[in-house]
Design a binder for these strands. Structure first.
Length: 216
DNA sequence: CCTCGGATCCTT
DNA sequence: AGGATCCGAGGT
């Protein structure tokens, strides 16, 4: 299949999550995104994609969220319409990519923490900073509305993903709100971020590959 | 204006 | 265990 027909196949098969998917609470959207594909159309119309294997939920009623205290210039996007990106610079070096969720004027979003990409090193996007770098997303993409038309969208998970286990744990790298179980990852993917204690490492026999999610 | 500390990752 | 490197938030 040529790249252009692959691109149009997404549209023809409606392999695009509707915007309404994100108009739900972050703690519902976050586990629901596990197994879905993040797809980016590149300048040459080739598609860059991978399977989302780790997410975290944030919302303004808990202290881990950037919108916990009040609206500022930095976190304003988080209060905006669901279905757009909230991208911020962290530790002065890396970017973190969120998809805004729930409803307008309620700060909430899902942090995309790790993606498995077929044919690439399994650690290429195994963390929020690496993921942002691999997909070429940075502060200029803050407020970016994800859609097929805009060349960045999420494709629904394949039925085959349902046999796999989604593990729920505490979030990673927080000083406040760290106890809340708002992180989810796909077991036994080898592409999740490696920072959480107690994560069950996948055995080499069980290691999960994104190849069973090829189009269509 | 100054200081502090990150939703990280890589190297000792 | 510590450094890279930016910048928003909060205190003086």
């Amino acid at each position: 299949m040529t790249e252009d027909t692959e691109l149009t196949t997404y549209k023809k098969n409606k392999e695009i999550l509707p915007n309404s998917f994100f108009f739900r609470p972050a703690e519902i959207v976050a586990p629901d995104l596990i197994g879905c594909k993040l797809v980016r159309r590149q300048a040459n119309n080739q598609l860059l994609w991978g399977v989302i294997v780790e997410t975290e939920a944030y919302s303004q009623d808990e202290p881990g969220c950037h919108g916990y205290k009040n609206k500022t210039a930095r976190n304003e996007t988080l209060f905006g319409k669901p279905g757009q990106l909230y991208v911020y610079l962290t530790y002065g070096i890396y970017h973190c990519v969120n998809i805004v969720t729930d409803r307008e004027n309620w700060a909430s979003g899902v942090l995309l923490r790790a993606i498995a990409m077929p044919g690439e090193n399994e650690r290429i996007a195994a963390g929020p900073g690496l993921l942002a770098e691999r997909f070429g997303l940075n502060r200029s993409h803050d407020r970016f509305k994800i859609s097929f038309k805009n060349g960045l969208w999420v494709a629904p998970k394949k039925p085959s993903i349902k046999i796999l286990e989604i593990v729920n744990t505490a979030r990673v790298g927080l000083s406040s709100g760290k106890e809340l179980p708002l992180r989810w990852y796909l077991q036994p993917s080898r592409s999740i971020s490696k920072r959480a204690k107690g994560d069950r490492p996948p055995s080499s026999l069980l290691a999960w590959k994104p190849t069973n999610c090829d189009m269509p």
